[in-house]
Design a protein around this nucleic acid. Structure first.
Lengths: 233, 233
DNA sequence: CAGCAAATAAGTCGTACTTTTTCTTCCCGG
DNA sequence: CCGGGAAGAAAAAGTACGACTTATTTGCTG
């Protein structure tokens, strides 16, 4: 139940973070620092630091004479990679995966367009390489190897966009892709059409074809949405 | 120079956060906790909590026997509202505003499309109301009042999308719009074309016209990009 | 060059004290 | 007799300080 922990703070932080994001403490619940200190067998100092961190994630709010109050989901800092990881580990993983995939479908086409505008030759090369890697590993149950190339590909696109907000979404995309491979129904080899699309995106970026890079990426995103049946019934 | 402060922790946090995001300590700089404690005239306890918070924002990294190391920009949690506010207060405000506007241009059209699909009657009403408010305040130097409606409008769209990742971007959009009004060259009344577009978006959402809502919002975003000349020279 | 020893700064702990906020109680006036 | 408000008590977070632990680096020595 408890994480192995190297360092007390990380241990308590992940334990509490997981518990809260899992809905173990409904919004409005009140925790007390010394109660937590006792429960985790650490000093109040450690608990306080953890609470401060959870507070910046807007998972909780600390009020004098009251305690540490769990905040409703709408307040949570859902872009915090740690929060994302916690939530993906929990029960509403599917819902979370949908939200994030919709986000991807909005961001990645635009990012790809910008990448076609801004990618360095090195990035173009890297992109092509990863796309070819995807082709090479797309058959014969090499899902793990395929995943590595897939993640790398999307990361390069986001980086090459030249927009830092997009670039920082690399981790999120990585989580989504990893989650999909490992937990979704993906006994089959990847869709050949998707693989082809990736190769074509690499091409489009190399040829500085903004509209085409954007449109092709839109198709990839569309595929991902279909896979999770986010689309209307 | 120092913030008024209600509570030591917030004071030290904002001071240090602002200093770091302003580039006052270049990446790789090393701070020591008791040096900071002395400088801010607070106990090491408070400094440690602050450092822990800055650590979750990936502004710094704390290493034993070394100290607190300032991380490079690429590591920063640029989606953290606090970090955004700090950076918008600093020198690279223009660059920041561009990044965020590009992000908006990717997100908001998709959000508007989803809003057309998912908005409640109440949200449709709210949307129309804000759009009309924009019309009413778009002439005669009522920039502040106009801003209120503009912010509210975009917030409703993001909320109505039904996607929590989009919804949480409301604050970011608010910051961008506020920043634009207050610091950009905006002595003129708002562009009438933009105002009309907002009214039309409200219409499209009400009529459940997904494609039209998306396309109109894309035009709004395009206008915002043009305003900051993000577009290619 | 390997390995050991010392120095250093963060990590942890316990306790004492302060401050803010809320709950209780009691008194006064209506 | 009841309501309201002020004074007081209580509870929990916020802050401080000092002692001790532990990991890591540096540098010395064999």
């Amino acid at each position: 139940m408890t994480t192995p922990a190297q360092g007390l703070h990380p241990h308590v932080l992940t334990s509490l973070g997981l518990a809260i994001t899992a809905g173990e403490y409904p919004p409005g619940s009140v925790l007390r620092t010394d109660e937590l200190a006792e429960r985790f067998e650490v000093s109040r100092t450690v608990v306080r630091e953890v609470v401060r961190v959870l507070e910046t994630m807007h998972l909780v709010e600390s009020r004098r004479r009251v305690g540490v109050i769990v905040l409703p989901t709408e307040r949570w800092n859902v872009y915090d990679p740690q929060v994302i990881r916690w939530r993906l580990a929990g029960a509403d993983r599917p819902r979370q995966l949908r939200s994030l995939t919709v986000l991807r479908s909005a961001i990645e086409p635009v990012a790809a367009g910008l990448a076609a505008l801004n990618a360095t030759p090195e990035q173009c090369r890297e992109l092509t390489e990863q796309a070819l890697g995807m082709v090479a590993t797309s058959r014969g149950r090499q899902l793990e190897a395929y995943l590595v190339h897939d993640v790398a590909f999307h990361r390069v696109v986001l980086d090459a966009s030249g927009n830092e907000m997009f670039a920082r979404l690399g981790d999120v995309v990585a989580e989504v892709l990893t989650g999909r491979t490992r937990h979704q129904v993906m006994f089959e080899d990847p869709d050949p059409a998707a693989v082809t699309l990736h190769v074509q995106v690499a091409e489009a970026v190399r040829e500085r074809n903004v509209a085409r890079a954007e449109e092709l990426t839109r198709e990839i995103a569309f595929g991902a949405l279909k896979e999770l049946d986010v689309l209307a019934p």
